[in-house]
C-alpha cells in the first residue's frame, strides 16, 4: 500500500515538506515538483530533514522544474533521483495512491 506524496512548496516558504515527511508512512515516496524542488538542494534549510527521512522514504525531484530554476543536478542531495514527466507518470502508476501536499 505504498503511497506517492507530491510536494510543490519551497521548504523556506511553507511547512509543506516537513508535514509531508512527518506524516508519510515508511516505504512510501516523495516527489518534489514546482517550487518544491528547492527542498532538494544540498545545504538548504531543510536538507537535514530530507536526508534523515531517506531511511524510510524514497525521494525524487522533477527534472524540468529543477532546470527551469537553474538548479544543476550536482547541487542535489545525494540519494534523490531526478525524473521527467514520464517518470512522474511511472511513479503514480507504481504507487497505490497519490497524495498531493498542497
Amino acid at each position: 500500500m505504498a503511497m506517492l506524496h507530491t510536494v510543490n512548496k519551497s521548504p523556506t516558504d511553507r511547512n509543506t515538506l516537513e508535514s509531508c515527511i512527518r506524516l508519510a508512512k515508511k516505504g512510501g515516496s516523495v516527489l518534489l515538483i514546482e517550487d518544491g524542488v528547492y527542498g532538494a538542494i544540498k545545504g538548504a534549510a531543510k536538507a537535514d530533514t530530507v536526508s534523515n527521512a531517506m531511511s524510510g522514504l524514497s525521494f525524487y525531484v522533477l527534472g524540468p522544474d529543477l532546470k527551469a530554476r537553474g538548479i544543476s543536478e550536482d547541487k542535489i542531495i545525494d540519494g534523490i533521483k531526478v525524473v521527467d514527466y514520464n517518470g512522474f507518470v511511472d511513479l503514480v502508476s507504481e504507487h497505490d495512491t497519490t497524495q498531493s501536499w498542497l
Binding site: E34, P64, Y85, N86, V89
Partner: peptide
C-alpha cells in the same frame, strides 16, 4: 504552475 504541471503530466500519461 498547477495547470502547467498537470498538462505536462496528462500529456506524458497519454503518450
Amino acid at each position: 504552475a498547477a495547470s502547467d504541471t498537470a498538462y505536462q503530466f496528462t500529456k506524458a500519461a497519454l503518450e
